[in-house]
Amino acid sequence: MTQPGARVLIVDDDDGVRARLRSFLDLHGVAADGAADGESALRALREHRYDAVLLDVVMPGIDGLEVARRVRLDSDVPILMLTGRSAEADCVRGLELGADDYIAKPFRPRELLARVHAAIRRHRGASERLASGGLEADVETRTARLFDVPLVLSGIEFDLLVALLRHRPLVLSREALLQRAGRNAATVTGRNVDVHISRLRKALGDDPRSPRWIKTVHGEGYVMLSHDVVPD
């Protein structure tokens, strides 16, 4: 669904990528401006209001990660990082700095469009439902269900569940989970995350030794496993 009046900023040093994205977004009712480097992007964001930013990670001068860090100092505009498929560490770092999503290159234009619309809807406060197999979370009502059975979760457990569902299949570090769950690292430590993940697993009936939902990636963090088929 097209977001009415949506305007995005495309930040990429590849002229061809910017041109193709602008044409595709315009065709689907989304106005788009372009910036070829970090300095131009920061200037455009100071001078104009955007509903979302598509931000390439690797650029000359100020890279995308530094742009994201600076933007988050005084703006909550949705940021979607554009990364190479082998740059998962950049994805995680971007999320830790406050990016809302990531899209791996080469990407499918319709998937990118769907993610842009989803980010704008979230920012505008529209309802959002996330699901993987029989696990569902309604962000607006802050309720979760497992095969239609309501789950009893604390506030932070629900926020961690949403972060894992929203960013699957990306492995999220403890720091990225705290950032995406909207928690202050000064009050919730990385070890606290482990405790809350353990409680979330218990609510899901998940065995960490043979996980169906949340997998620990040692030395990196946690990932929500995807399920396309619901078991009988």
Rank of each mutant, 00 (worst) to 15 (best):
M1Y: 12
M1R: 06
Q3M: 15
A6M: 07
L9T: 04
L9N: 06
D13M: 08
D14R: 03
V17Q: 13
R20Q: 14
F24P: 12
F24A: 10
H28P: 05
G34Y: 04
D37A: 11
D37I: 10
E39C: 06
L42P: 14
L42M: 11
R43Y: 10
H48C: 12
Y50D: 05
A52R: 00
V53L: 02
D56A: 06
V58W: 05
G64M: 03
L65E: 09
I79F: 07
L80H: 09
L80N: 06
M81N: 07
M81G: 12
L82P: 05
R85I: 10
A89N: 02
V92C: 13
E96V: 10
P109F: 01
R110C: 01
E111P: 00
L113T: 00
A118C: 04
S127T: 15
L130F: 12
A131I: 03
S132T: 14
E136W: 03
A137E: 07
E140A: 15
E140K: 15
A144M: 03
D148F: 14
V149T: 14
G155W: 03
G155Y: 02
I156T: 12
F158S: 02
A163C: 05
L164E: 00
R166D: 08
H167V: 00
R180G: 00
A181E: 00
N184K: 14
A185D: 12
G190K: 09
S198P: 01
L200N: 02
L200P: 00
K202S: 15
G205E: 04
D206A: 11
D207T: 03
R209P: 01
S210R: 15
V217L: 11
V217N: 01
D228I: 11
D232N: 12
